[in-house]
Nucleic acid binder design. Sequence first.
DNA 1: TTAGGCTTAG
Length: 788
Amino acid sequence: MPLEEIRGSFRVFENSLRGSLQKVGFEHLQVGCDCASKYVQGTVAASYPLSKVGNGTSFFKIILQESENPCSKAGAVNTYMFGKLAEDCASVVHQGDIMVVAGFSVSKSTSEADGHCCRLEVSDEAGSTIYIKMKRKIKSRESTHQVCTRSSNTITGSETVAMSVAPSYTYTPLNLVKGGTIVNLYGAVKFFKPPYKCKGTDYCSVITIVDQSDAKLICSLFNVNRDALPQIYKNGDIVRFHRIKIKEFSGQLQGISSSGFAALTFDGTVGTPVVPRTSSKLFTFTDEDRKTIEDLRIWVASNLLNSAVAAKLSGIQPPMYFDLTCQLVGKAKLDGSSYLLKVWDGTKCPFLYWKVVVREDDFEGDSVLIHRLRNLTVDVVVYDNHVQLAKSLKVGSFIRLYSLHAKFQSPEDEPDVSYLQFHLHGGTTYGRGITSLPEGHADVEDLKKFLNSVDLMEDESSESPSEPENAYFTLGSCSEGCQQLSVTVLRDHQHFEVTALSTILNSRSPQPYRIRAKLRQFEPEKLHQSVKLHCPQCKLLQEVPDGSELDLILQEASATCPRPDLQNTSFCESVVWDTENQGQRRVVIHFVKHDELLQDPEDSLIMIEGGTLEEILKLSKKFKGIIPVRAMEDDLELLDLSAPFLWQGNIPHYGCKHCSNPKAIASLSPLAAQKDPLWEPTTIAQALGLVPLEYVFVMKFMLDDGTGTLNVYLMDCKDFFQIPASEVLTNNIFQENIERIMNKLCPSGTNLDDLPWLDCFIKSYYVTDGREQQICYRVFDTTIAEDV
DNA sequence: TTAGGCTTAG
């Protein structure tokens, strides 16, 4: 067998080996020596991850340290294993194991840093045999996570080698971090917001860490993938951040995830296994890391006061905010901005509590189980930003609700009775949020054990404070209006109180409000009339030219003749396209070169002289971007800014006539010289000295909340309808969607009573025509609910 | 870009 484990006494084994083979010391290993009857013996000082060489053969490298002669200059030798032997060894070899290698060949080492002039090579094909005397039996395979393990007593030579593969990280104590640097940090979590979808494109997690230096650092971490953010479950967890950027904000240093950011998270409890939580497949983890974590754990135990309150349902003391670890047994949609989670933690809530009635069709969960648990489950209503995550939770899974609010509320028709309600309010303040706990998490295992021990029969027979007959009532009966559907979702500022329109009408100061009202009327009726072009700089609005206007603009601009001598400029390759049967009309296409070469059409920017709208639209299906140009004096230049400066897809992009300062087309050449030019409209506009206009929906809503009516403007690029205004004029599906939404918000011939509610943010502001000031209102941070 | 800890108000 090419790989054998040595059982029993190593001395006995070695004696048996000496009958046929001769031991060779590391200092006698030389290229060209006859090793057929030799063996070497050493201790595994370090191992590297199993990898593959160019032809796909498996490759495994270890550093073998001469056990009996650790002071020798040639005390360590790199051993390279190939093929199946490499795979077999990689799965069993650990640092500290004693290894005997026979049937090896000796090659010249490729690096002086290897510490030995030679290296050993072994494989099944070469007839090699490796014997391993395990340092200890290891049941769990924690060490498979290790990219490289450095022995605590490695000699200098092998340490150098180890570090050249697995970088040695330096960790900055939190009191020594400086603005404008990128550092590696260790810290204990003092506060955290579980990952949530933020206003940008990513998920965000805000984490405050502390360490033995007593300094704290608030870190904002972003990632498009929720799972890539640190998996923190409670304060006191320990994090390791690599490549976090430090910058100053409001006079305070903060950390922010930058390119290459990576995190590991560990349970912060002394004595629990040191197992890193990460979604990354490859990371380093050394003995020093383990030591750092163990030291931090000890420090946490006596220095970090956990401000979060964790409670069982049996122990709550309302009103309070607390963290609840529980199992999800059912869930249901309530309306666009609220969602029901039915949960239990095996204990009984001692108060009369609120149960939410939902339509059977909207409910997901095992009704038989829920009936059996009826005296132990509680209904949690989650709002706003938490709805999306709540929807995605799996019934049966274990979850933690952070900063859950338990408070009493009396129904209007029963002022003498108060029921306990559980709300996970909107927003993320105080770390409000939900995490799904993974199977195997210690708290999940404990909860499972406890849930299995609960005697349901005993509970079912007992008198319950929340008998369904008298405790069930609908969302609506607790507070006027709260059950009625809102067709909008608030993207932020959920703590704002609702202001009546009558109050707003009587106020003259510019300020934001949260309102709840119905849409009586809106203008314009025709959707295409609502899309305008808006200059973010001078704020002017203008109409979007229609097809016939555009055609005319292009015809006028094409009146100048293409100049053949302006072709083939430094960054373009030009062709003349003779139009058939169209008299004198000639079209010149300039292909923008990248790195002296033409790109694939779908990545290419082209410029066109003398093309019609029809031709441009045809070409825009094939090329990344099209810039209409004309020849003027000695250079190519943009058309008059009445015409688009760019087509991308079938969308024309315009520049502001007032704010732009157009430059010669040659200004694009630095962009063309970039490694991978993306040809984004904003970068092209910037290079050409243009301020790009944005497409916006402009609508006027007449809102009514029963206390008054208010005209409110909507001016929005994409956030309100979740449909980009830039694409709506050229996309039938988007047009139909918006028409459907508007029809739901304000169906014609419907009484005000039957219209849906809109929760909105509006802000008041003044406009002046030079003589008179007028107060106006505008919608912001409001989105149409997904299910509308 | 986003958030920049510091409870909703249903």
